[in-house]
Each structure stands twice: as C-alpha cells, then as structure tokens.
Simulated assay, not measured.
Amino acid sequence: MRNWLFTLILLTTAVSGMAQIKSNRETIYAIMDRQASDWNKGDIAAFMNGYWESDSLMFVGKSGVTYGYKATYEGYLKRYPDRAAMGTLKFTYINFTEPQPDVAFLVGKFHLTRPEKGDLEGYYTILWKKINGKWVIICDHTS
C-alpha cells in the first residue's frame, strides 16, 4: 500500500509539473505572438511590453551588449525608424525549457519580410523570468 501511495504522489506531482510547464510555455508564446502583432502594427512601444522595465535588462545583438530598458527601446527605434525598415515580423519557436520554476529559456528564429529594404532573418535566445507574477524578458540575444 505504501509503494502504491508513494507512486501515486510522484505521478501526481510529475503531471502537475508538466501542466505548469505547458501553461508557462503557452503564456510566453502568447506574449511573443502579441509582440509580433504589435511590431506588425508599427508599434515598437507596445512591442517593448514583453521586456523587463529595468536598467538590468540585457540585449545582445551584432553591435554588442545594450543594458537597460530605455537603451534597448531607443536601439529599436534607431535600427527600425519606419514601417519599411520594420517590415512584417514572424517568430518560429524552436526550443523551450524551464531550468527553474520561475525561469524559462526560449530559442527561436525570426524573419522580417521587407519588400523595399530586403528581408532579414536570424536566431534568438531569450531568457525569461517571472517577476511579480509576470513573465518578462530579462536577456535577449538576437543575431
């Protein structure tokens, strides 16, 4: 009887953990989908809502490391000054893991369709953290 009860507890815990990971993944994918939608409307300010509003936010791109929410936002505005430069964004999700209950790591691919300026595409690795009950990007490496 003890072995059966122990097995049931382990199984229940595992199923609950897998359900939480699925829920977190779906939440983060929904944030990314909303970001793509905001981008495709030309709204970089709304796109930034997925990022941690902190001086500790880190963005890593081809020109190096940028620290802080404001500097990251200003970098986007500089690199994408108009709708032609922004194009149409599509994310592809490749791998999602949760090394800790409040930390997630997402690897994916982005594609910008830009008929006037030429398409851009590359890969990203994003480190997410659940802060005050909200999933936010704390580190974005896009190349």
Rank of each mutant, 00 (worst) to 15 (best):
G61P: 10
P81D: 08
Y124R: 00
V107I: 10
S54F: 03
A71C: 12
P115Q: 07
D119H: 01
T125L: 06
N132H: 08
D33Y: 04
W4A: 14
V107G: 00
G50A: 13
T13G: 13
P99I: 04
K117Y: 04
T142A: 07
D119C: 03
Y69E: 11
P115T: 07
F105Q: 11
G42F: 06
Y73A: 13
G118A: 02
Y73I: 13
E26A: 06
Y29H: 03
Y123A: 05
K22C: 00
L127F: 09
T27M: 02
Q20H: 10
A30M: 05
I9A: 15
A36T: 01
G75R: 14
N3L: 14
T72Y: 14
A84G: 03
L127G: 08
Y51T: 09
E74N: 15
S37I: 05
K129M: 12
F6D: 15
I28K: 01
L10S: 15
D55N: 11
G118Y: 05
E53D: 14
Y67K: 14
C139V: 09
K70P: 12
A104H: 01
I9L: 15
D119Y: 05
Y93F: 05
Y67A: 10
H111D: 00
W52E: 08
M48I: 10
D82Y: 05
R2V: 10
M32Q: 02
T92Q: 02
Y67S: 10
W4C: 13
D33P: 02
C139K: 11
L106Y: 04
F105M: 14
A19I: 03
D33Q: 11
P99T: 06
L89H: 02
G64R: 08
L77A: 12
R25C: 00
V65Y: 08
T13M: 13
Y73R: 14
T12A: 15
W4V: 14
K130P: 05
D38F: 12
Y76P: 11
G50I: 02
T97E: 05
F110A: 04
K70Q: 15
T97R: 08
I137K: 05
K62E: 12
K70I: 14
A85R: 00
D119I: 00
Y80P: 03
L10E: 12
W52T: 05
R25L: 01
Y51C: 11
A19F: 05
P81W: 01
I137F: 02
R114L: 04
A36V: 03
G50N: 07
Y67E: 11
K62G: 13
K134A: 01
S16Y: 10
D55Y: 06
T66C: 06
Y76C: 12
L106E: 04
V136S: 10
S143D: 04
I21C: 08
M48L: 11
E26G: 00
R83P: 05
Y76D: 11
G133C: 07
Y29I: 04
V107F: 09
R79A: 15
T113A: 09
Q100A: 13
H141N: 11
E98L: 08
K70E: 15
K41V: 07
K134W: 03
